[in-house]
């Protein structure tokens, strides 16, 4: 490749995604081989894993982009990305904690924080809506699904 002017920009996020996919595929392939080396067990998983890893290799160069001098790469503002990550973090916390703190408390807390993160600044509206929505949801799903779920207050 002839050298062009400009610098190389690394798309770290994309690189991380490919790393995750690679780790999962390699783990799964190795685990499958560890369980049994019978052809019937490897029939699909082995070729599919190799294929996936080859694809990762082909896509890898796309994580590095050469940007010519002066060209601006468009980027979303850091604060917008920050809000996405904040919501993601709250969502993960909610989904993993609901079993322990009770569905009612977890849902209400998630709704209040979620509404705030999404831009609702009127606290009366926020808390009111969250409370009503949480109650309705718990009553509705509670009436329908044949499983008990832990509640703390309701």
């Amino acid at each position: 490749m002839e050298s062009k002017p400009g610098r190389i920009v690394v798309m770290w996020g994309h690189l991380a995604l490919l790393a995750v996919i690679t780790v999962v595929v390699v783990y799964y392939w190795m685990d499958t081989r560890a369980v049994s080396m019978q052809t019937v067990n490897l029939l699909l998983v082995q070729p599919a894993s190799i294929f996936a890893l080859l694809l990762v290799l082909c896509i890898l160069p796309q994580c590095f982009r050469r940007v010519s001098e002066g060209e601006e790469i468009e980027k979303e503002s850091l604060s917008e990305l920050g809000r996405v990550f904040a919501l993601m973090a709250v969502f993960i916390t909610f989904a993993l904690s609901m079993q322990y703190v009770g569905f009612d408390v977890a849902t209400f807390a998630f709704m209040v924080i979620g509404l705030f993160l999404c831009g609702e600044r009127n606290w009366f509206l926020n808390i009111g809506f969250s409370a009503v929505f949480t109650s309705l949801l718990i009553w509705g799903y509670g009436a329908i699904i044949p499983f008990p779920f832990p509640l703390t207050i309701l």
């Binding site: 009553w139 509670g142 009436a143 044949p146 779920f149 509640l151």
Partner: peptide
């Protein structure tokens, strides 16, 4: 709590 949930479910 379980018993109340069950009753609720049965009620609905």
């Amino acid at each position: 709590r379980f018993s109340r949930r069950d009753m609720l479910r049965f009620a609905s």
